[in-house]
Amino acid sequence: MKLFAKLALACAVSVSALSTGAASAAEKFIVGYANMADTDVFVMARKNAFIEAAKSDPAVEVNFSDANNDASKQLDQIDNFIAQKVNAIVVVPVDYQGIVPGVEKANAAGIPVIALGIQSAGGKYTFVGSKNIDAGRLQGEFMKANLPKDAKILYLEGTPGLSHTQERKKGFGDALGRTDVKTLASLSANYDRAEGMKVTEDWIQSFSKFDGIIAANDQMALGALEALKGANRVKGVLISGVDGVPDALTAIKAGEMSQTIFQDAAGQAKAAFEVVEGIKKGEQPPAERLVPFASITKENVNQFIKK
């Protein structure tokens, strides 16, 4: 496998040497891209976007590895990149804590590290991605502007014990900041559509009127929508989710859902590549390069459906 990779590298180098003439093997800037799991739809989309972005600079070459959600496998792969003396490592950490030894080893070897999408609990690196607290904040801002006076709302939490569940909820609470709005209830539906539906059905029984359901992801929001449809209560309820899945976009276009928050895979990949380019030019990489979430509502939903 390694031999094959080396051969492939040699071929690539010689081909590019032929084509550019001036570029030699020593001048190639090699990036090791340690992906979390090629099976994850979002993570894979971001990897493909990175490949696209990397095409803009023929002097940059990217080597990929896939940890398949195994934190220790990912550490081995980073060791390999360090042994290959790559010029920069882009890693999508499998685990926030588990990646630390890898980041520290790369630091010791003097190789700059970019953590993409997920941070590392330690070591020196550049974080490129979006902050979950901002997804909640965008939901809060939308509700602040659109909920009627003295509104009553319900919040569907994600799986308890995950950091992004807490962050999305906190971001929402921070940004809402309206004393007249009352939260009737807040329960977890484990990011699951069937559970979101079940909890909302129970809420429909408990509360004769509410004006908004805020969910920590789109699947729960869509489950809530099904429950409201079943009870004929869709009208007058603002529903907001996070992710921007196709179903949610369709529901927003139909006027059944009000908002979803889109995490920009392509934008994150592009930003990561820009940081790589900066390192190549010898610039000091920043500690953080944030890519904002996009709030999708009826006004701008069409431009996202096309994608």
């Binding site: 484990n190 699951d192 559509r193 069937a194 539906m197 869509l222 489950g223 099904e226």
Partner: peptide, 15 residues
């Protein structure tokens, strides 16, 4: 019944 109820085929459903 479950997938029909939630009106979509959820590969992560039923956990």
């Amino acid at each position: 019944v479950l997938m029909s109820r939630i009106n979509s085929g959820q590969p992560a459903g039923g956990v």
